[in-house]
Design a protein around this nucleic acid. Structure first.
Lengths: 194, 194
DNA sequence: GTTAGCATGTAAGGAGTTACATGATTTT
DNA sequence: AAAATCATGTAACTCCTTACATGCTAAC
């Protein structure tokens, strides 16, 4: 359902929903928001923008300020807004993968609370799975090259990174739950007053 | 000089140098050693093994234990050993990238001390550069969606991960330097005795 | 006036994934 | 005897990068 490439689509639609931009600026915004995750080349971006226009999710807003041309500003169409909502609501297993997760998380500000929690839980499960795998594959019984300090260090660093990620996710989930609790309490208060 | 694909070549030659294996087993070893980094599919591995044989770096060692066939064991040829040495000694800028660095580091056990240090320093510079970039792109002046906690958190997590990686690298470099010092001292002692 | 950054694109090719196809061996 | 896992491969496809090509605009 959501290939890696849907992530680029999500990022584009999400950012353009905030404010119409042209490609060059858009790329910088992607780097600002998702700079931790990966780079984005023009060879990837421009063809994709063309496609999104073709599919009706974006429209070109020509802004010929004086003689300045060839600057194409893109804006999200109603169909694009629907598509964005759909992508944001879709929280399938591929949404727990590294990049997909980061993109989804970046747009949590406009994602439903239930979807947020589902993605966070999925991500946690994914990270725990990975940690277990790293631990299982540990270089303990390193028969061939016993005592290779470097392999051991690499392994330990992998474990520590995964653990740090897990702690972060756990914190995010806690925060979400507290938010939910507050929301429930407010609903409760409102009901009390009736 | 070292495309992403050279990393796979390095991993294959490095592991097969330790012990000849067939493809299936090799894949598991790659996961054991580099499991933290990325997965490796058969669709990638087998064609590459074929190529390496074609290029003379590997040779097939058929091991028909009883009727058991179709199991192809691969071993490194002299040319392959040369190639491996070359790949290990090549510490160009692409060796500081995430995956390439991990692969190089995994084989530090048979890498020259000077090359090790060069790669570690390069990696540190790369990480520092990345950290600076993340900090510069920080969601501080987030005009469009002020106070988007999620973006702020994502950003912070990115900074923290980068910092943790940097601390790790710094520790590795320290260890290397101490090793060098010890080595020099031993040489010094030996000279004293003369 | 020339360098640096803004701005848009295309074409070719590299790298790898997915899905498929096939069969042997080991374990339950 | 079925299920799991070992074992090897291919073909189609996707995605992205690199290198190229082009021209404008701002700053020095």
């Amino acid at each position: 359902m959501s290939r890696r490439s849907d992530m680029l689509e999500l990022a584009i639609l999400g950012l353009l929903q905030d404010a119409p931009m042209h490609g060059y600026e858009l790329r910088k915004q992607v780097h600002r928001v998702l700079g931790t995750v990966r780079a984005l080349s023009y060879g990837t971006l421009y063809p994709r923008l063309r496609d999104l226009v073709l599919w009706g999710y974006l429209r070109e807003v020509d802004r010929p300020i004086a003689g300045r041309r060839a600057k194409i500003t893109y804006a999200v169409t109603p169909a694009g807004r629907e598509r964005l909502a759909h992508l944001l609501a879709a929280a399938g297993p591929s949404a727990w993968e590294d990049e997909a997760f980061a993109v989804h998380f970046a747009f949590f500000g406009r994602t439903d609370a239930s979807v947020r929690l589902r993605i966070l839980e999925g991500r946690r499960a994914r990270l725990e799975e990975r940690l277990a795998l790293i631990r299982a594959n540990g270089p303990a019984r390193n028969a061939t090259r016993p005592g290779d300090t470097y392999l051991t260090e690499l392994h330990r660093h992998g474990v520590e990174s995964a653990e740090a990620d897990l702690r972060w996710i756990a914190r995010m989930i806690d925060t979400e739950r507290q938010k939910n609790d507050r929301a429930f309490r407010q609903v409760g208060d409102a009901l009390d007053k009736e």
